[in-house]
Design a protein around this nucleic acid. Sequence first.
DNA 1: ATGTTCATATTCACCAATAAGCACTTCTTT
DNA 2: AAAGAAGTGCTTATTGGTGAATATGAACAT
Lengths: 143, 143
Amino acid sequence: MLIGEYEHSLDTKGRLIMPAKLREDIGEKFVITKGLDGCLFGFSQKEWANFEEKLKTLPLTQKNARNFVRFFLSGAMECEIDKQGRFLIASNLREAGSLEKEVVIIGVGTRIELWNKEKWHEYSKQESSSADEIAENMDMIGI
Amino acid sequence: MLIGEYEHSLDTKGRLIMPAKLREDIGEKFVITKGLDGCLFGFSQKEWANFEEKLKTLPLTQKNARNFVRFFLSGAMECEIDKQGRFLIASNLREAGSLEKEVVIIGVGTRIELWNKEKWHEYSKQESSSADEIAENMDMIGI
DNA sequence: ATGTTCATATTCACCAATAAGCACTTCTTT
DNA sequence: AAAGAAGTGCTTATTGGTGAATATGAACAT
C-alpha cells in the first residue's frame, strides 16, 4: 500500500529520488504517465498491468474512451530506479506535470503521484478546508 | 477499546510516547493520518485495513473520490512503536496537526487522536459547556 | 519512611537516506 | 572532428531517523 507525502527535488538532469518508504512497493521498475488534475501518476508493474487491462475494456467506438486511452498510453514510460535510489523523468513528462525543481511525491494506495510542490500545496489546502465534505464521505464509507 | 486522555511531549526528533494504557490496543504498528478539526487520527492495523478496503472501491474517474482518497492516503503513514514505547511522527503530519511540543493523546473507541495541547483544551472547554446538547444527542442513539 | 519497579523524559552517538556536485559516456548536430 | 545535449554513475556532505544510556518521578510494597 503506497501512502504518505514526501518532498524532494529534481537534480539538474531531471532525476528524482524515490522515497525509501515507497521503493519496496513500487518496485525497481515502474511506469509513469500523465495523470489527472495536473500531476503525474506512477504505477508498479503489477498495478500498471491491471490499469492496462481496464483501459482495454473501454469501447473503441466512443470518442471519449479513445481520448482517455490515448492520454494515458501515449504519456507513459517505464522508469528504473538506479543504485542510488533515483529515476529519470523524460522531459515531456516533466513538462506535463509542471515539474521544475521541488516535487511532492504522494502515495495514493495503488499508485504514486508526482506534483509540482506549489501546485500540491495549493490543491491540498483547498481540499482539506472542505472538511465537511470529507466528513460526509467518511460517513458514506463507514468510518 | 481505546479510552482516556494523556499528555506527553515530542522529543527533539519529533517522537512521541505512546501511553502504556493504549499500547496493547493500538498494536505495535499502527497508522496515523490527518484527521478532522485539526487533529491527527491513529488507527490500529485492523481498523486501517478495513478503511483501506473501502477506499479501494472508489472510482478513479470521479473527482470527488480522487480528492477523498488523496486526502487520506497522502496524509497517512505507518508508525512503529520502538522498544522504549515511542513512535516518530513525520514532519508533514506534525504540521497538519499543529503539534509542536506538548501533545494530548486521547482514546476514542476505535481510534486515537493527537492534539496540540492548547487546541485540545480550547476545544474540550467549548464542547463540555454544551454537555446538555450532547446529552440530547445521546437520545438519538438510545442511551 | 524506604526501597523497588515501571512509565516517561532527555540527551547523545551512530547510521541510513538524501542533496549536490562533478566526471564520463553516448548520441546528435554542425 | 568539435561542441552540445542528455543520460549514467560516483563521491562527498548533510540531515534526520534510530537505538542506547541515563535521569526523573509516580505507584506500590514492605
